[in-house]
């Protein structure tokens, strides 16, 4: 009986087929290319980790969160303050992750009662509040002047490689978390919440606890990423750490790859970073406007994302309709 059921289960689009080669290719970039490419690869890993994280709350659970930058910024400040207080760099990263997770648990308890647009606005307000707090609490955060961190020894090429592999590891762990979540009891409960929150409650899903767990999982690696990038750049300031642009960019990447798919956000981050960099290097003045137009087009023509279900079916349907219209 068991085998007959599992044989009729739909195969999930997990995307390991392309993820593993992509990860290997990324891992080789700093070994074969110069520091500029290593830096771009670091951005890809960083945004992939952030988009995978956002996917837990925005994709699996269906809560449109714009809190990404709040978690990244908190991780950056926590890491920087601890490192400046004498904590070893790696340990500071781990501690920053823990601080961010704790913050997300408390914050989630408060704002996950809101739904839809209200939740979205509430979550973006957190980013602004955190930025104001960071610029006002000068004794701890250095206020508007920001904080300097010790420069990583060994020269830029060496540092570039170290920080690339740090981000790479975070991305891999975030991907493993997504794969685990997809098969776990918690992940199943989150999909129930995403489909129908009242019905989820009624079948016995502890909805509030599940949503808070999802929010914490979505914050965890944002904290790590923030702390690593603070060490990498060796300087943080409130508008950089709590960046509204980042809080909008990350969900777009996840949607581009396919929200709710297991590894789609990685693909979304890769495509987004490559397109953004290409546009910036060719058309510095207009790059952001062009990016905006591309995003609008993608949302119109690829609402399910690159890995979303039914892309090919819809495209072939569109073609058939065009043919019928012209005939």
């Amino acid at each position: 009986m068991k085998s007959s059921i599992s044989s009729v289960r739909r195969p999930r689009r997990q995307g390991l087929v392309w993820f593993v080669p992509l990860a290997i290719a990324l891992a080789l970039v700093p070994l074969f290319f110069n520091n500029y490419y290593a830096q771009q690869a670091t951005f890809v890993c960083m945004y992939a980790a952030l988009a995978l994280s956002w996917n837990v709350i925005g994709g699996f659970t269906g809560y449109p969160s714009f809190s990404t930058a709040a978690f990244v910024g908190l991780g950056a400040y926590a890491g920087a303050i601890l490192q400046n207080a004498g904590m070893p760099m790696m340990l500071a990263w781990v501690a920053a992750t823990a601080v961010t997770a704790l913050f997300a648990a408390v914050l989630g308890y408060a704002i996950l009662r809101m739904k839809g647009h209200y939740f979205a606005i509430g979550s973006i307000a957190i980013v602004e509040s955190m930025r104001l707090l960071a610029s006002s609490w000068s004794s701890l955060t250095g206020g508007g002047e920001g904080l300097n961190l010790p420069i990583f020894p060994g020269g830029p090429d060496h540092a570039g490689r170290v920080f690339f592999y740090a981000m790479f590891v975070v991305m891999i762990v975030a991907a493993m978390m997504s794969l685990w979540l997809d098969r776990s009891r918690l992940g199943f409960g989150l999909r129930c919440v995403q489909q129908n929150e009242d019905a989820a409650d009624m079948v016995g899903v502890n909805v509030n606890a599940s949503k808070i767990a999802a929010f914490v999982l979505s914050a965890l690696f944002c904290g790590t990423t923030g702390a690593i990038s603070a060490s990498w750049v060796s300087y943080i300031s409130p508008p950089d750490a709590f960046s509204i642009l980042m809080t909008l960019k990350v969900p777009v990447m996840a949607l581009l790859g396919g929200a709710g798919t297991v590894l789609g956000p990685v693909l979304g981050a890769l495509v987004f970073v490559l397109v953004e960099q290409t546009l910036m290097s060719r058309f510095l003045d207009y790059s952001q406007a062009m990016l905006g137009v591309i995003i609008v087009f993608l949302i119109f023509f690829l609402p399910g994302g690159l890995l979303g279900a039914g892309l090919f079916e819809r495209l072939s349907g569109r073609l058939a309709r065009l043919r019928r219209a012209s005939a």
């Binding site: 129930c192 009242d198 079948v203």
Partner: peptide
Amino acid sequence: VQPFPQMTVLENVAAGALFGGGAASRP
């Protein structure tokens, strides 16, 4: 009726078995 619309019929019922019915695992 309150189904989970985009899940399969089997997944809908499995949700009841897993969360409310105390089944040990998804299989």
